[in-house]
Design a protein around this nucleic acid. Sequence first.
DNA 1: ATGAATCGGGG
DNA 2: GTGTACGATTCAT
Length: 803
Amino acid sequence: MKIRFFLLDIDYITEKKGLKIRLWGKTADGKNVVVFVQSNPYFFVFPKDIKKAQKDIEEILKGKNISVKGIEKIEKKLNGELKEFLKITCFLPQHTQKIRDFIKVLEKNRGGTGSIIEEYEYSINFYRRFLMDKRIDGNCWLEIEGEKLNTNYKVDLALNAKKIKVLEDISIPELKILAFDIETSEIAGEKQIVMASFYGKAFKKVITDQKSDYPDWVEVVKDEKELLQKIVKTFNEYLPDIIVTYYGDSFDFQVLMDRCQSNKVKLIVSRDKTETKFTRRARISSARLNGIVHLDIFNFISNILSPSLQTEVLSLDAVSSELLGDKKIEVDYQEMLEAWRKGKNLSKLAEYCLKDAELTYRLAEILLPQNFEITKTVGQILFDVSRMTYGQLVEWYLSRKASEKNEIIPNQPKYEQVLKRRKITYIGGFVKEPLPGIHEKIAILDFRSLYPSLIVSFNISPETLNCDCCEENGHKVAGLNYWFCQRKEGFIPSVIKELIEKRSQIKKKLKETEKTSLEYKVLYNRQYALKIIANATYGYFGFAGSKWYSKECAESCSALGRYWIKKTIEEAENKGFEVIYADTDSLFLKTKDGDIKQATEAFLDYINEKFPGMLELDLQGYYETGIFIPRGAAPGTAKKRYALIDKKGELLIRGLETVRRDWCNLAKEVQRKVLEFVLRDKDIEMAKQYVKEVVENIKQKQILLKDLIIYEELTKPIETYKQIGPHVMAAKKLRERGMEVGEGMLIMFIITKGQGSISQRAEPVEFVSLKEIDSDYYIYHQILPAALRVLQVLGVSEKDLVS
DNA sequence: ATGAATCGGGG
DNA sequence: GTGTACGATTCAT
């Protein structure tokens, strides 16, 4: 039979019958399907002497208890040049790595016969390799010809594939999305789940074992075990295609798993009825539910979205406020613990819990389309792509293109090499320090496409660097002794060029498309996906763990970038602009006299005419008022920092917010108000006055103790700390008073007056009264830094705020 | 001063 | 069934 479906997930299983890839997806008429495909993993050997290499390998394998499916001779490009390789096809995914380890001793530098020079692509994950080979993108439509199978899976249809065809179709079928959130409480130092919420299309549900009067969408069960069973049941009855969480990889699913183990409940959510497992990744483990995509949107927000967000605090509250214009229900942590303990206000907590799931769901509604398009562009699956950093997106995009162009994918550097690379530095982007103060009528020009353009125009790629053929007339980089090949297009420029060209085609099409249509949305997200990958490639050259690392390429990009931005600044100044600020790829202009819009438009026409190749300067926008903060002004100098306000009174703030939960509430409040005074009311005096009042209030103790609490987590057992920070000291004091203190506990403390370091004066909030607080700490370490972050630029100093 | 250690995000 | 964050803050030397 023949079916068509939208690919959601892929994995593989090893059964007695052999190794099978599983493709999971959904048909246009809402059926969930799984398709089994026969495939084998393999890797490549680059030989010195191909015949001897094959004999040597066969000899080694005879001595080990491991066999291969086959060894064949094939041709692949290594650094752009066609060479002969041995392709070793294996029976099991883990065999590629294992067999490689056995045969690497043949390399000369390891004291072997020298018949092998190097091995390649032995650590590429099996299903990722499958996607690359078959040219299948995650979230594409597939047409499968095959025979029906019987499984015990929770699917409508299972097939054994004979033929797979990738279809051209941009549509997305209706998917069942379910957001999930839990609330926990600490009882005798142990975390317990006390509430869970679910939010989907026309579906809302809260389950709890805490008795109280609730609205009808709350279900009360008798204990935690029943709560856990009910959670599992809800997942299985709703049977979503995608489960969305906010920080679920590191919290909700971790705790759920943990509690299920303690209560002997099986956490079976997957479609193949296997228990939830965590797949290890770099920093975090991810909860994987076979056949259901677990999307933890915090990953995407933190890895990809955060640079373009105004907020630097990536809490659900801050992110929802910015993206949805909606907030969490306000309950602070202390209040929540109190509520669980006393069984008070539980109805509000149920609302709170549901609201979290609702916000998570609505964020997913916005971010899923973007994720689908990035997934399609990179050519991997949603589960993985939604968790990738910029570097990983670039790496997997390049890997896919390498596979398409029959190029060998370079190996990942060894750890020692990464360390060595990290020590190498080169000069970064050019920064023209901002002129201090408030500026009016500003134009922002954007060079964002600067690096991709330069890579293409100058043919910057590891294998085109210092080629033999162009020593005389290659692309020269001013100030560096490098050149890039004029004759042969490099691998990276060729794939970047594809990205840029595809993107400009889409942008052209966007102009002819109805803005409210689905097609517009899809195309818009697609061009965004292409843009972020193209823009990240320069950084990837210089990233120490990169497979296509080249210090020379990265250095060339930044040198050329500096050259062009300086030239642009010069041109702008010649045309009568005042350049208030410039950083790497953006310029902030003001006219000395005349209309900013007219002058800017004329300048853009003029300069883009002059620029070579694909280089282009774009208008980012006009702003009424703005302040810019010099990189050196405050500690932490790497980020661009400014605040702007446009004609409609909309604020645009970058890099100014710093206050996280390890700052007290009062500091957060102060920073927010100061920004409002400065930008909205343009009244520095009022801002100063306000800060002075707060300072005075602290001195007079006219504040609430709860606004001074600092929250910090004990991330490991208390004995293992080498450095005793304030929260560790506070935790020790809790323990001395007979409280159980464990890993993962959120410590709430106050800095008190007295002798010694900050840590020594950190006291658990339970044992502090307002009169003991260290006013100086709160004034000089919390309130003033938060306020001065903004006010410093306006010439306000610490002295102006404390009399 | 400078470097090492630690944290966030979720509850 | 691979593995890269990073900027701010405080302690320790």
